[in-house]
C-alpha cells in the first residue's frame, strides 16, 4: 500500500538525528520521535499492548477523574476506572551521563545531544504510557534531579532538566545510583544513558544493587560513528576530553586494532549487563532514534 509506505517513510525520516538537530524544542523533538515510532508500531499488533483493555476497578480517591468510564457510570451509576495494559503503574528513571566525553561526536549531533533526544523521547513515551518519569543528570556529581511523577506538569520539568544538561568533567556512576537508591524505593525502569567509558566492574557495582532490588535496568550505550569506526588518514594526536591525556595513534591502529577493542568493550558491557539481568542497547548517533525506543518498549513489554 503505497500511501502507508509513504507515511511510514516520512515518519522514519523524522527520526533521523540530523532532522531532529534542527528542532530546538526538546518537547517537540520528543513528540516527533514518539509519534514517529508509534506510527510504525501500529503496523505491528505485537506492540499494541498499551491500547488493550486490562480491567475495570472502582474509583478511589486520588485517581484521575479523566479515566472514569462515563459509559459504565451511565449504565450503573458507579464510577469505574478503565485500565489498559500499558497503564499499569510503573515509573521510568532516566540517568543521563553529561560527562565531557559525551560532548564528543557530530555533526549533526554529539553524543550528549543525541542522548538528550533519547532521554526526552523516553520520557515522553513513558508519560504517554502514564508512567511516572524522573531524571538524574550526572557527571562526576549529580547535577540535576527530578523525582518520578505522573503529574502532567512534571514532564516539562523533566524535559527541561534533560535539555539543560551540558557536557563537562569526568564520569562517576556510584553517585547517581546512590542518589537513585536514596530517593526511590518503588520498582520500575531505570534507563542509564551514557557512553560507558568506565571500568565495567565500577559500573556493575552501582547497577547490581538496583537489579537486586527489582529495578529493571536498561543501559543505553551512546557512541558516535567516529568511535565505532574511526577514519583517520594520518597520524593524529588524540586528546582525551575528560583527562587531557594525549595519545598519538597511527591510522593503521585506528583502522584495525581500535575497532576490535571498542567491540570487545561493548561485548563485555553487554555480558556484564546480562549477568545482572539488565539490558544493554548500543545506540549509534548516526542512526535514527526508533531503534532505541523499540528496545525500550520491548524491555517494558518483557517486564509486563
Amino acid at each position: 500500500m503505497p500511501p502507508l509506505q509513504t507515511s511510514h517513510s516520512n515518519a522514519r525520516d523524522l527520526l533521523r538525528p540530523e532532522v531532529l538537530a534542527g528542532l530546538k524544542n526538546l518537547d517537540l523533538v520528543a513528540r516527533s520521535v514518539v509519534e514517529g515510532v508509534m506510527i510504525g508500531l501500529h503496523r505491528s499488533p505485537r506492540f499494541g499492548f498499551s491500547q488493550e483493555f486490562a480491567e475495570y476497578r472502582s474509583y478511589n480517591e486520588g485517581d484521575d477523574p479523566r479515566f472514569i468510564d462515563w459509559n459504565v457510570f451511565a449504565r450503573t451509576e458507579k464510577t469505574y476506572i478503565k485500565r489498559f495494559l500499558g497503564d499499569t503503574n510503573s515509573h521510568l528513571m532516566i540517568l543521563l551521563d553529561a560527562s565531557a566525553s559525551m560532548g564528543f561526536g557530530g555533526p549533526p549531533v554529539n553524543k550528549l545531544r543525541y542522548a538528550q533526544f533519547l532521554s526526552a523521547s523516553l520520557a515522553f513515551l513513558a508519560a504517554r504510557q502514564h508512567d511516572a518519569v524522573g531524571c538524574i543528570v550526572f557527571d562526576e556529581e549529580v547535577r540535576d534531579y527530578r523525582a518520578p511523577s505522573t503529574r502532567s506538569g512534571k514532564l516539562q520539568g523533566v524535559l527541561h532538566c534533560i535539555d539543560s544538561a551540558t557536557a563537562s568533567t569526568g564520569t562517576r556512576f556510584d553517585k547517581p545510583f546512590d542518589k537513585f537508591r536514596e530517593q526511590t524505593t518503588r520498582r520500575g525502569l531505570v534507563a542509564v544513558i551514557s557512553d560507558f567509558y568506565c571500568d565495567i566492574e565500577d559500573l556493575l557495582a552501582g547497577v547490581r544493587p538496583l537489579a537486586w532490588n527489582g529495578q529493571d535496568v536498561v543501559l543505553f550505550q551512546v557512541l558516535d560513528k567516529q568511535e565505532l569506526d574511526p577514519d583517520f588518514k594520518s597520524n593524529v594526536l588524540l586528546e582525551d576530553i575528560e583527562t587531557g591525556e594525549a595519545v598519538e595513534v597511527a591510522p593503521q591502529f585506528m583502522r584495525e586494532a581500535y575497532p576490535q577493542r571498542i567491540r570487545s568493550h561493548i561485548d563485555q558491557l553487554r555480558k556484564a549487563a546480562a549477568g545482572i539481568g539488565a539490558d544493554h542497547v548500543l545506540v549509534n548517533t548516526s542512526d535514527s532514534l526508533d531503534q532505541a525506543l523499540r528496545n525500550y518498549l520491548l524491555f517494558r513489554e518483557r517486564r509486563q
Binding site: S101, M102, F104, G105, K111, D195, Y197, D224, E227, S234, N235, V236, L237, L238, E239, D240, I241, E242, T243, E245, A246, V247, E248, V249, A250, F253, Y258, R261, I262, H265
Partner: peptide, 20 residues
C-alpha cells in the same frame, strides 16, 4: 591540526604513547 579531541583514551594502549 593533527591534535584532535577524542572521547576517551581508555582504549588506546600505552604502547601508542611510546610510539608518540
Amino acid at each position: 591540526s593533527e591534535r584532535k579531541p577524542f572521547s576517551s583514551a581508555m582504549l588506546l594502549e600505552k604502547a601508542e604513547q611510546q610510539i608518540h
